[in-house]
Design a protein around this nucleic acid. Structure first.
Lengths: 196, 196
DNA sequence: TCAATCGCTTTACAGCCTGTATAGTCGATG
DNA sequence: CATCGACTATACAGGCTGTAAAGCGATTGA
């Protein structure tokens, strides 16, 4: 059985339609209105089909998150930071991160919100966020090659930079979050104040 | 009719019992398990009584938030920052804020989470947060009496400081958020880097 | 070409939660 | 002592999740 058969393509299409519908509703509607019925209707599909594609409502959120993360991967993997100076890498990572938060803001807001209230969503989100924490960790190590004269030890700095570059912080910038470049400049300044 | 009659006191007690039960469950249980039935049971009361005290589930959240805010008021109004230097006021406000976030962390996390997903919760929370934004705004004005040599204009700085001192950012500090004093020191450092 | 497969639909159902209505209980109030 | 008001018990409608079962029709592989 070829994986790219007509049938497989068709089901992949409906799967994508469901995920897209979920994204849309998640971004624009209230949580209460985010029913599997509404998602199914928007995807032009029956509610049972949604259950077949995605085991449950939880599974639907996972699928949406996977979809979002995929877009993230596309952007992030475009460039390698190894051949940049530490400072350039810092600016690059922060700017890319802000741009991503900005682009996916409307979907990420409810997802991060739900994570505060539902362990499963939190777990899925945490798994996706772990690599970001690693990235930041490596970045901080590169940045603090010169011994820091600051009063904060390394783990504190790492925690601080992770928080500074997190989505909730970005989203909390209010009107500033509408302009990813300006937001990135601000966050970069703050990160510099921690890493020297 | 005396407002502090025995009857009134009794109903106030059950009201408080309900709010306390809601707080407890909100802090320790998942959102799915946060049913009015569970709250009622924990408060030693019927579900109908909950509806009588609080119009709806939404109303219950409002009541919890009011309760939390009241504790906040108790702490905040204890001292006046007018007779402090700008720098002392900054440290004071930040430290108080961190302590409050820390003390109420478990209840605030779900509340802020739900705010990302429910307009009504967001509205209630925003109303409570507005005075905090004002406080920060005034603080920044005091701090930047000396014209800032930074590249950021005042509104940007204000937005940044509000974000830095917000609950989501505090909660995002991870292990660091377990120690309000250390967290406050970090945030203070960051605020200084913005205000000079 | 033909029969099996597989995704999708329709329909139906159980369980849970919210919100409302009603009648009754019991202590505080005046 | 009669009234008032908070609380209880019970029952019901409506909505959402999740599951089950049967059927339909296009794709697939022989």
């Amino acid at each position: 059985m070829r994986a790219d058969s007509r049938r497989a393509a068709s089901t992949a299409a409906t799967h994508q339609a469901i995920v897209d519908a979920a994204r849309e509703l998640l971004a624009t509607r209230q949580w209460r209105e985010f029913t599997l019925d509404a998602v199914a209707k928007r995807a032009g599909v029956t509610r049972v089909t949604v259950y077949n594609q995605v085991r449950s409502k939880q599974g639907l959120l996972d699928a949406v998150l996977a979809d979002v993360a995929q877009h993230a991967g596309m952007d992030q993997l475009l460039t390698d930071t190894r051949d940049l100076t530490a400072a350039d890498a810092r600016r690059f990572v922060i700017e890319r991160t802000c741009r991503f938060w900005h682009a996916q803001r409307d979907v990420l807001r409810p997802l991060f919100g739900l994570a505060a209230v539902d362990r499963e969503v939190a777990a899925t989100l945490a798994r996706r966020e772990r690599w970001r924490a690693d990235q930041i960790h490596r970045l901080v190590l590169r940045l603090s090659a010169t011994p820091p004269r600051e009063a904060f030890d390394r783990s504190t700095v790492v925690a601080g930079v992770i928080a500074l570059t997190s989505f909730p912080t970005y989203d909390g910038l209010g009107p500033l979050a509408d302009d990813p470049a300006r937001a990135a400049a601000l966050i970069d300044h703050l990160v510099v104040s921690l890493t020297g």
